[in-house]
Design a protein around this nucleic acid. Structure first.
Lengths: 199, 199
DNA sequence: AAAACCGAACGAACTAGTTCGTTTTATGTG
DNA sequence: CACATAAAACGAACTAGTTCGTTCGGTTTT
């Protein structure tokens, strides 16, 4: 976490990213951010008006990366879930940041979430297309299905037993098994039901 | 949040419960807890050695209530998911508390989680029984299925779009629809696959 | 009378944000 | 290339406010 070749401003943002993801808004320390960025506080406050604003900047950056990384394509919702899962594995910081924001915010003062809502709407629209293409059971309400898929993909991040104790291990074998289960679960979710009963 | 008929110790614990669920360990204020409990700080520190210890006391209490409330019975995993969902709706504080603990803890200094692990093992055991009874597809690894079910039941708590913005509303109609979707999703998950292909 | 309790004040440590003098880096000019 | 000048950055000290945890005299309860 030392001085890279980058701008002080970029170094600060990067250090803030790690700090906020690890400790949250209340737990983060401005001095630690500056130190890890090999920058001075004077510079930090020259670029960012406020601890809270810096936090929001980091949040928006994370949301932007998150939403541009996992996208529903080819009407393939299980593959989408797999991409979401991969993101939770490789960018655990992003998920932590979102959780911090959810817990530490009134929800009143959030600017950066239009990113999230736009992303959400777009994926919901694509689910609707996948339904039209017969790849997803039409009886699901798209937005609700989207939430379910997200819940499944991030299940191992939020499940208390696993999350609090690192139970089940985190080696690549265990992770691969989890990924397969995510995909299989979503396949079962979206599979169009067998030709409806005759009735 | 005023003086009930209860002991000061109980009042303090109850106020701490609300405070920690709302603000977390770092964000909680000892003075606010004492005030909302209509107790004095002198009493608070007479009963609880430490802010951190009080936090852990509250966490353990929440975990205990949580784990005794939603239990898998009658080999009925979808109903179990429904009970979990109900718990997330009625006791949102418990989920927040668990999330705070996950985010604000190294995982090294957690005593209260044996409660969680014991609960988890027991539910996993019951899933295994449900599999033996033919009510749950036998190809699922029980612990993994447990995590998936938990992820589905708490999907609306953790999904960024919904959680950060209250999108989709939280009236009883919306909640009932979500509950139905949780149950339907888990039904699809656990449904024993049709008689395997001939091959 | 003894124990439990309150209220208020206090100390010590910590932290966000500011200020300022000095050093480094970039930029333009002859 | 040499040099002057301005902007950018550092470092360290400082302010003002907050917060945990303690102490203690007085009051209520048992």
């Amino acid at each position: 976490m030392a001085r890279n070749g980058a701008d002080p401003q970029t170094r600060i943002l990067e250090a803030a990213r790690a700090e906020f993801a690890a400790y949250g808004l209340a737990g983060a320390r401005i001095d630690r951010i500056a130190k890890n960025a090999s920058a001075s506080k004077e510079r930090l406050y020259a670029y960012y008006s406020d601890k809270k604003h810096l936090f929001l900047e980091v949040l928006e950056l994370n949301l932007r990366e998150f939403t541009s990384d996992a996208v529903l394509t080819d009407h393939d919702v299980p593959a989408f879930a797999g991409a979401l899962f991969d993101h939770t594995v490789q960018h655990g910081d992003h998920l932590r940041m979102i959780d911090w924001a959810r817990l530490e915010t009134d929800g009143t003062w959030l600017p950066a979430l239009e990113v999230m809502l736009g992303y959400r709407d777009e994926q919901v629209r694509r689910i609707r297309l996948a339904q039209a293409a017969g790849r997803v059971d039409a009886s699901w309400e798209p937005a609700e299905l989207m939430t379910l898929v997200f819940g499944i993909a991030s299940a191992w991040v939020h499940e208390p037993g696993v999350a609090l104790t690192n139970a089940g291990g985190s080696d690549s074998v265990a992770i691969a098994a989890r990924r397969a289960n995510v995909i299989r679960a979503v396949e079962r979710l979206v599979a169009p039901s067998a030709t409806p009963a005759i009735s």
